[in-house]
Design a protein around this nucleic acid. Sequence first.
DNA 1: CGCGAGCGTTTGAACGTTCACAGCCACGGC
DNA 2: GCCGTGGCTGTGAACGTTCAAACGCTCGCG
Lengths: 348, 348
Amino acid sequence: MTKVTKGANRRATINDVARAAQVSRQTVSNVVNRPDRVAPDTRARVEAEIERLAYRPSSAAKSLREQRAGAVGLELNTLGHGRRGDIIYSFTVELSIGARGHDCHIVTFGSDSDRPSITGYEAMVRARLVDAFVLADTHHDDPRPAWLDKAGIPYATFGRVWDAPDFTGWADVDGAAGTSAAVDHLVAEGYSRVGFLGWPEGSATGDDRRRGWREACERHGIYRESLQASTIQELHPAEEAAAPLIEAVGTGGAIVCVSDVIALAVQQVLLQSGRRPGIDLGITGFDGSPLAEMNDISSVEQPLDQIADELLSQISDRLAGQPLPEQGTLLTPTFVPRASSRRGVEHA
Amino acid sequence: MTKVTKGANRRATINDVARAAQVSRQTVSNVVNRPDRVAPDTRARVEAEIERLAYRPSSAAKSLREQRAGAVGLELNTLGHGRRGDIIYSFTVELSIGARGHDCHIVTFGSDSDRPSITGYEAMVRARLVDAFVLADTHHDDPRPAWLDKAGIPYATFGRVWDAPDFTGWADVDGAAGTSAAVDHLVAEGYSRVGFLGWPEGSATGDDRRRGWREACERHGIYRESLQASTIQELHPAEEAAAPLIEAVGTGGAIVCVSDVIALAVQQVLLQSGRRPGIDLGITGFDGSPLAEMNDISSVEQPLDQIADELLSQISDRLAGQPLPEQGTLLTPTFVPRASSRRGVEHA
DNA sequence: CGCGAGCGTTTGAACGTTCACAGCCACGGC
DNA sequence: GCCGTGGCTGTGAACGTTCAAACGCTCGCG
């Protein structure tokens, strides 16, 4: 007797509703999918039964019939935290929330290998588990776009695809607008010199954020006093790069950082030298990660909900046979001020 | 002409394989699911065709026939980061990786409301999108276990269910073993007094970790010199609680923290007073979060891959009709030493 | 030599849905 | 009064899979 007794009472099917409402199953289907084709009183009767029996179409049956999974795949890997400054989780959440509105759902799959490979994608496609993918961390020499193109699987990416400038199926954050807003805020708070601590040149995202800082400084007429340095997305190297920049900007100055991790490094160095964030030196980060929130660091928050929604819309369009959009979607982030960039507020 | 031309060449079905291998579809099905029932040469022929045609059973058809989704639901919410110290993402990844081995997949769904409600669960169940759930953050007065029990939906939880001591469908980390290992390490490194900074009493997880610290201190005969304090899982309150404890333990002492966030708070306070982690005061955290890694804080790393695997196994068993296990599964975490608890190593 | 058992294979049915089309009815124009 | 039309509802088929049962073959036994 190892057989399962499937949940006390079997869930209602379209036939149960049809029988209860004294119509055929097709009429029930129409009520759900093409309400306009059904006479008002019939519709009301069917809708009442749907409600009463708590009927919801079986996604498996629908998938089989429609030859589509109604699902979008998302690869999660253990590298996720490093890249994109720790917001991958929030992005995954927003995607999961947004999926309901696009009547699909998110299926995650993982790869434990270091380099993301296409085997996971292939498995998903072959099992017809998903119709499309969201790529969250495209990088240089990424094999995935080409493979997906060849296989004819639609996808949309969070961030531009470096190797393929012609590809427009992306949504991204306007990095320049973000750092620009940070500089505006710092100037308004009265910081006189504004430095920038970025990634080494050559990363599109990093260069974009640097440009926003430079342009804003020029606009405020403080560019000549400003300085920049570069580092990679790790705490210790960042701390080494931070120290001289802090001295160069001096007390009463501020540093706009290319990411929250870098901003944290700056704050650490500052604290070790006995100075107070905000009061002695302004600091802003980028990404709106929990890291920044926890450490009371001002940050440029990415509109992840909008990005998720945009990507899902694009995927819907691709699945409906529409061509790629004219151009990618650039969304404006929000600057969130915290103690690290307020001169008057004591940093707890 | 908005109709989609579905990916150049339709993917192979069981019938295509059957025709190519000159057998019936059921024989192909047997080769895949019950290879022992098929004659060796037939099997070889069929397997060759499966390989050649890149056949993989359609999950939709399988779901419909077997009346099960072959999927496990996981709720992700925006609160995730705060709770469980930021390891939710890593847990999600491990679950996604582990799913393949249990031939199922993970479907995530989100709730944007603050309090986790059961509406998301209900939607998943009604659409037959998932067969079971993993609950990652059960808490006091959690309505979900009772609702799932009533609905007859299996689930397994990461962490014990407070309100239901009889429920054994959980996997958790042996918190006491973790803090105990931390104390062992600190004593071996030569720290003489070991304090504990925990959460307020009454949380099972927190009390467990505190007990491990106390028992290890007793074992090493240093309990009388040890001290404890309590705080909540937020940076600023933690910093306030940390300051007096740091003074009480004194230079050459160490503090075992109930979480990485708390450990970070201790390190921040220490740095602000010009002292060096590890050298002047030992610090250990708990969770193995990226936060600890980035800040070079020793931590007790949770075996998330094992937990994910165990939970998926339990779900498989429940779906196969087996009863709840005798007791929950307690897994041993690993202590990972870093600069914050090495007396000789300079903290960069 | 007949018969049951066992093995490997095939066949029919079913899972729940939607599409294409057929049917029914009422209405209006000729 | 007949037929075409348009609005609404019902019927058969199909999506790809697995289960239950039937089938044909070989073998061993009486």
